[in-house]
Nucleic acid binder design. Structure first.
Lengths: 344, 344
DNA sequence: TTGTACGCGTTATCAC
DNA sequence: GTGATAACGCGTACAA
C-alpha cells in the first residue's frame, strides 16, 4: 500500500502504463496535454519510479561511476567536482560509490556495472595491482586517476592518469641536494609493495645513489600503519622519533603534505627553526601548504589537469574516439618558505 | 551474451535456478556438495548476481544509507568510519550516497529507499529546513547528524544530533571577552537563513549584547559565496579585507578552523603577532588546529560521540527500542596558543 | 533436497 | 497517440 507504482499512476490518470512510462522518459510519441496531466498527478502523489526495475530493463543509461577507496584523500573532492561538471555537460548521470576498506574495488565495479548499466568508470584510490581475470571481466572502459600504471602491458584495456611518483620524488631530493643538504631524512609509508610510499622512497634512493651518497637506514622512517597513514599526527609522532634518535640531519622529506605539517610542528616544539636549522619538504600540493607558517615547499600534483584529462579520456574511449592511454603528468616543484640552504 | 545470469550458472551446473539461488543466499535446505559445486562454478565463471533484480524482489535487506551533501566537510570521513564499524557489528550493509549540490537530499533518499529497501538513513550536511510533504513521505527512520533541529515539532518523525551552534559560538565570544577583548571581529558565512554561519553569528551578537557592547557592523565579515565557503583561502582573503579596512580589533573569531588558518596566515604576513597583537579563535576542532603554529584555540565538536550516538539511535529506532530524539551535544572550548589577553 | 512457475516494477515491442 | 503484453534477472511458494 505505501509504495505506489506506475500502475497506480496510470489508473489515477485513466491511461495505460506505457503512456505514463513515455511521459516519464520524454518519449516523443505523446500528446502534450496527456503528458502534462500525468506529470501533474506524479507531482501530486509524489510517485518515484523504482530504479531497480528501471535498470533491469533499460539498455542505454548514460551513466558513469566514480569509485572511491579511502575517503580521506584530500584530492578526491576536487576531482569529483570537475568530473561532475563535465559529465553534466555530456548529459551523463554520475554515481559516486564508496568502496569499503576490506572490499575489492574491481568487485564493486563489476557489481555496479550490472546494476546500473554503466558506460564508464573512474577509480580513485585503491591498489595499483589488480587481478588480471577481474580486469578482463570488466568490459566497460575505466580509468585509474592518480594511480600509476604498474606494468606496461601490450594491449591497453584501461587507462591511467597519474604523476610519476618515483621521478617527482627524486626531483625533490635533487633539489634539496642542490641546496647543499647531505643528510636528508625521509618519512614515508610502506606497507604494500606497490604503494606510493614505496615509489617515493625509491625516488629518494635514486637521487642519493646517483650522487654517490650512501643510503643511511637511520634516516628512513615509516609511519605506523594506521587507518590513515597520511595524517598530521603520524607526521608529528614520526618526526619526534626521528628527533629522539639523535641522528643528525639537515632536511626532512615527508612524502605527503599532511605528514610535513606534523613534522613542522614537532620541529617547532623541539626548538628547531625552519628552514634555518632544518628544511622540510612535502608532497602533494594541497591548500594547507600555502597557508601554513612556514609555507611548505612541495611537489604539486596538477590535480585539476589530471581530473580534466581523466574525464575527457573516458568519454573519448566511450565514444570510440580514442584508445586507452597511460599518461604521466609532470608535477611542479613549488619552492616556498620551508626549505633553504643548510646552516653549517 | 556477455552478461551471464543465474540461469547460465544453473545450466552449467546441471541444476535448477532455485538451487543456485539457495547457494547464493546461504539457505539451509541444500546439500553441501551441491552448494560447493555451484560456488565453484560461480568463482570460475565470475558470475555476479544482478543487484537490481535482487532488490526488486527482496523484502528484508538489512541495509542503511548515509547521504552526504558537500563532500568537503572535514568531519564526514570520521563519522562514516564510525557508522561503518557499528553497522558491520549489527550485520547491516551500508551504502554511501553522494548528493549533488543541485539535488534535494530528500528526493535522493526517497529514490534510494525504493531502490535498496533501506531500513534507515543518516544525513550528513545539507539543509536545515525541509519540505514537510517530503519528510512525511519518507517512512524510514532517519537521523540528521551535525544538523540541528529547526523547529521543535510536536511529533518527532526524525532525529537530530548536533551541537548548538548559537550557544557554543557565544561561549567562545564570552571567553574572548573575559580575556579582556572588546573589539572582536567575526568572519562568518551567511547566505542562507538557517545556515550554521547565521547561527554562529547570532551567538556572537548574543554575547556582545549581553554585556552591553554595541554591535559594530564594520567588524562583521562574510566570506565570498564560493563553492566551498569554509576554505583557508576564503579566510585569508577576508582577513586581508579586514586588515585593509583599517578598523581596530584585538581578536578575530573565524566560524570554522579552516577559515581561522587563513586568517592566521594573513595576520602573519601583515606582521601581526598571534596572540600578542591579535587573538584568533576557530570553530570545529579539526586536526589542523593542533598542528598549526600557533595551535588554534577552538570550539571542539565531539564528533566521535555524535557519530556513535547517531548510529545507536538509528538502530534503536529501527528496532523499536526508542523514539526519535533531538539531541544537542555540548562542545568543548579548547584553549591553545592562538588566543591571549589583549596587549593594550 | 531439488525444480517449476510466478511476480517484483519497469521499458520495449508490438498491435491498434 | 495509445494500450496490452512480453521480457529484464532474481527470490520464493509450491509441487515433486
Amino acid at each position: 500500500m505505501d509504495e505506489l507504482t506506475i500502475k497506480d499512476v496510470a489508473k489515477e490518470c485513466g491511461v495505460g502504463i506505457s503512456t505514463v512510462s513515455r511521459a516519464l522518459n520524454n518519449h516523443p510519441d505523446i500528446s502534450p496535454e496527456t503528458k502534462k496531466k500525468i506529470m501533474g498527478v506524479i507531482k501530486e502523489t509524489g510517485y518515484v519510479p523504482n530504479n531497480s526495475a528501471r535498470n533491469l530493463k533499460r539498455t542505454d543509461a548514460r551513466c558513469i561511476a566514480i569509485l572511491i577507496k579511502g575517503i580521506t584523500n584530500p584530492f578526491f573532492s576536487s576531482i569529483i567536482q570537475i568530473v561532475e561538471t563535465q559529465a553534466q555537460k555530456k548529459k551523463y548521470a554520475m554515481v559516486i560509490q564508496h568502496v569499503d576498506a576490506y572490499e575489492n574495488e574491481l568487485d564493486v565495479a563489476l557489481q555496479l556495472v550490472k546494476e546500473k548499466r554503466l558506460r564508464g568508470i573512474i577509480f580513485l584510490g585503491g591498489a595499483y595491482q589488480h587481478d588480471k581475470r577481474k580486469v578482463e571481466k570488466l568490459k566497460v572502459p575505466f580509468v585509474f586517476c592518480t594511480i600509476g600504471a604498474v606494468q606496461e602491458t601490450g594491449k591497453k584495456t584501461y587507462s591511467n592518469i597519474a604523476v610519476n611518483d618515483r621521478i617527482e620524488s627524486r626531483r625533490m631530493i635533487d633539489y634539496l641536494l642542490d641546496l647543499g643538504h647531505k643528510r636528508i631524512a625521509i618519512i614515508t609509508e610502506g606497507t604494500e609493495a606497490e604503494s606510493v610510499g614505496q615509489l617515493r622512497l625509491e625516488g629518494y634512493k635514486d637521487a642519493l645513489t646517483a650522487r654517490g651518497i650512501a643510503i643511511d637506514e637511520r634516516l628512513i622512517y615509516e609511519v605506523e600503519d594506521d587507518e590513515d597513514p597520511y595524517s598530521m599526527e603520524n607526521g608529528y609522532i614520526t618526526a619526534k622519533k626521528l628527533l629522539d634518535s639523535g641522528v643528525d640531519f639537515t632536511a626532512v622529506f615527508a612524502i605527503a603534505d599532511f605528514l610535513a605539517v606534523g613534522v613542522c610542528r614537532a620541529l617547532h616544539e623541539a626548538g628547531r627553526r625552519i628552514p634555518e636549522d632544518v628544511s622540510v619538504a612535502g608532497y602533494d600540493g594541497i591548500p594547507i601548504g600555502e597557508f601554513y607558517t612556514p609555507k611548505l615547499t612541495t611537489i604539486k600534483q596538477p590535480i585539476g589537469k589530471m581530473a580534466e584529462k581523466t574525464i575527457k579520456l573516458l568519454f573519448d574511449v566511450i565514444e570510440g574516439k580514442s584508445g586507452h592511454e597511460h599518461i604521466y603528468f609532470p608535477a611542479e616543484l613549488v619552492e616556498r618558505e620551508s626549505t633553504g640552504k643548510p646552516n653549517n
